[in-house]
Design a protein around this nucleic acid. Structure first.
Lengths: 206, 206
DNA sequence: TAGATTGTTAATCGATTAACAATC
DNA sequence: TAGATTGTTAATCGATTAACAATC
């Protein structure tokens, strides 16, 4: 299972498969074929089988995939068998909303640390997490053993926050600030900018 | 400029170029080369020039691209020369945060309509927008002439909201609910699910 | 067994990159 | 003019799809 040779597009689809399998599981489905999965997700069955084949054979000819087994395997492949601590930097409107979102914890992502510069926020407890000063980023990230970060600070501050996070050992950053972050190789950065997405879509509208 | 033959990955990069050009503009830069842009964005200069060549030649051999001119051209290509009205469905934590976010309006996306089912929210004005019942989705979308939608309802309701939006003529949907939406061909759907992105990144962490 | 579906290979398709003539 | 950078072509690289033998 050499991670170097697995295309990133493939890795990105695995959580989508897991999400749909979870849904099937909740609906009480025990078995699912690549065709059914594909139809539900709007992709080809070939692609699903090819994607999974990078990691092994999880299905059974003639019937399909056992929902629970495949889900378990995907969770192991994605390192989701233990919870992950996350640091949230920036507790504005969006940061607060993410802090209140139960979907992270439900999926094993615990926001263990929230940082902001606003004196009125520091010390406040939001969704069970006390807001601490950004100044103390380094010590708290180390103290909590956090591995993942979510950036929800203004665009102008995002790069310097990213730099500090990288410096202190964070290797995966989910960036909500509307800038393209530059991070060293080996640091995984994903940007979520709704404006960029809307701007892509308006291309297709006349 | 036949939109059928332009790869979607290319279209998706244009807003990123525009974003960086905006930044250059604010910094007072008049001219930029594909090399400088590329280095800033972490991609190749070849790719930028190839992408732009789908739409014409905007640069000048020997010097590069005029920042203002290229930005103007990109804005026209992406249909960003006039503002777009957006409907927001679901005014929970995340919906409220998006409603308060000034970045949409600043980029020409006006949230003209906000819908929710919560009786305590209906009639309330948030960031200048009155919350109306989801029940009245069809009439208000028509009345306001909205073309784009943002979905921030719970996962269980997202598909039916998407169906109703599609039915009433919406052709571009930004979906924050953690489900894969199924929409007819011709409807552009982009999903933003932070959990899926974190799950992709944990693959690379041991 | 007969029918169905996987896992995998090979073919196709599409996107990225390198290279360079054109030209400012 | 000399130097630099574009726009574009051709080559490379990589991802998707089709097809089918294997097999449950």
């Amino acid at each position: 299972m050499d991670k170097e040779i697995i295309p990133e597009v493939v890795v990105a689809r695995l959580p989508v498969y897991a999400q749909k399998l979870n849904q099937f599981l909740q609906e009480g489905r025990a078995i699912v074929s690549s065709n059914e999965l594909a139809e539900q997700l709007g992709i080809t069955a070939s692609q699903i089988r090819k994607d999974l084949s990078y990691f092994g054979g999880f299905g059974k000819q003639g019937s399909g995939y056992d929902v629970i087994t495949l889900l378990e395997n995907l969770r192991e492949i994605l390192n989701l068998t233990h919870p992950w601590k996350v640091v949230l930097v920036g507790v504005g409107h969006l940061g607060s909303a993410l802090l209140s979102y139960q979907g992270f914890a439900r999926k094993g992502f615990e926001i263990a640390l929230a940082l902001d510069n606003n004196p009125e926020l520091i010390g406040k407890v939001i969704s069970g997490v006390e807001v601490r000063p950004v100044e103390q980023l380094e010590e708290w990230v180390k103290a909590e053993g956090v591995r993942l970060a979510i950036i929800t600070v203004p665009a102008s501050e995002a790069q310097s926050v990213a730099d500090r996070l990288t410096e202190v050992g964070i290797r995966a950053i989910l960036n909500y600030a509307p800038v393209t972050l530059k991070c060293p190789d080996g640091v995984h950065v994903s940007d979520i900018d709704p404006v960029l997405i809307l701007q892509k879509m308006t291309f297709y509208l006349e």
